[in-house]
Write a protein that binds this DNA or RNA. Structure first.
Lengths: 199, 199
DNA sequence: TTATTATACGACATTGTGTAAATTAGTTGC
DNA sequence: GCAACTAATTTACACAATGTCGTATAATAA
């Protein structure tokens, strides 16, 4: 996951990494509801009180981890979309994002796919929604399904949910397609209901 | 919600209803993680021990409530699809389902939309997946996006997630469209990526 | 080195969990 | 209406988890 370290006490970094790894580790064995601060501290080989020096409680920890996740994806989105002005006709951006997810699949699989921790799916859907809404404003890209008279908000939500849902399915099934291939299929399906009524 | 009572002790029905109402009620105030058996029993005006006579724990209660939910929707699906052999060209089935959700919006909103309790979304997505897969086998309905060379499993997941996601958004925004209208739009969007390459 | 700060350690009050026993009260069939 | 069930109540217990003390120790940065 490569936590982008600014000037932070290496002890803090070490402890947070230990907590994070212990949590992901535990989540592969038991349900979220059965995971206590006790167990996390035990598995992370830190003192239980130390956990509270970093996070208010488990919920707080999840939210901060979700923030980090979104931040990393935003970096990827920024990198790609600023380089290629053509803006993702062939699904380049999505391809990069899927590669990132594949590279950190242990993390994403457990948080998004196997155990379902709403905050992660929610944040990701929110981000996808922003991206699609932004794209819809570009004149060279077709206005979302307006041709058929479908309200924009319905079409945007339809698309965002479809994307995230498909990614979750892909993770659950241990990524049976390459990121590049899946990105292409998603682009095909997406363009279909964003820009229609034929030639 | 009209719990279809078979021959069951009215005391059991009463208690379960009290638990259910108390839980939905609490869920409007605090997060799921902060809800204890203690609080539920207190709010339901039953003894805490009585809760354990009905459910193993809170997780077990959620699963049984999700089972009931799916059961009710299945009844609707069965009723409609057996009556009209034309099978939902204009979104009749979806319309009935959305009407049901609207009629029990307090229940669905909190479990599906505001707080996100994965088991409910999961079961609903699973059901939607079955329905779409079954429809895809009917010859008079176009095979899913095969015309464009998109694998069936991708297209089916794409569609299912889109449906559920849009319904969630609809609930979150306090149902800004009528069930009938939304059903129509969903049918339009759906047919687009299930059946393409034009006439 | 020295001042700073993260972590460890032990302790404590509080709340929640799951189960057991005996008792009370409501339901069903005759 | 009475008798036989059976649900719910009450009280009690052992245990786990939470969140927060104060103090001691170790690592870090100046």
């Amino acid at each position: 996951m490569s936590t982008t370290s600014s000037r932070l006490d290496p002890r803090v970094l070490r402890t947070r990494q230990l907590i994070r790894d212990a949590f992901i580790d535990l989540l592969q064995e038991v349900e979220l509801e059965k995971i206590s601060v006790n167990r996390i501290a035990e598995r992370a080989t830190i003192n239980r009180v130390t956990f509270y020096l970093h996070y208010k409680d488990i919920q707080d920890m999840l939210e901060k981890m979700a923030d980090d996740m979104i931040q990393e994806i935003k970096v990827i989105l920024g990198e790609v979309s600023s380089r290629s002005a053509a803006m993702d006709k062939d699904g380049t951006v999505m391809s990069k994002v899927l590669e990132h997810i594949a590279a950190n699949s242990k993390f994403y699989k457990v948080l998004l796919a196997s155990k379902r921790i709403p905050v992660f799916t929610d944040r990701l859907t929110q981000l996808m929604l922003e991206v699609i809404t932004a794209r819809a404003r570009h004149p060279e890209l077709a206005p979302p399904a307006a041709a058929l008279g479908v309200p924009v908000d319905i079409a945007v939500w339809y698309g965002s949910s479809a994307f995230i849902g498909t990614i979750v399915w892909w993770l659950r099934n241990d990524m049976p397609y390459t990121p590049q291939y899946l990105a292409k299929q998603l682009a095909l399906l997406f363009r279909m209901h964003q820009n229609t009524t034929g030639p």
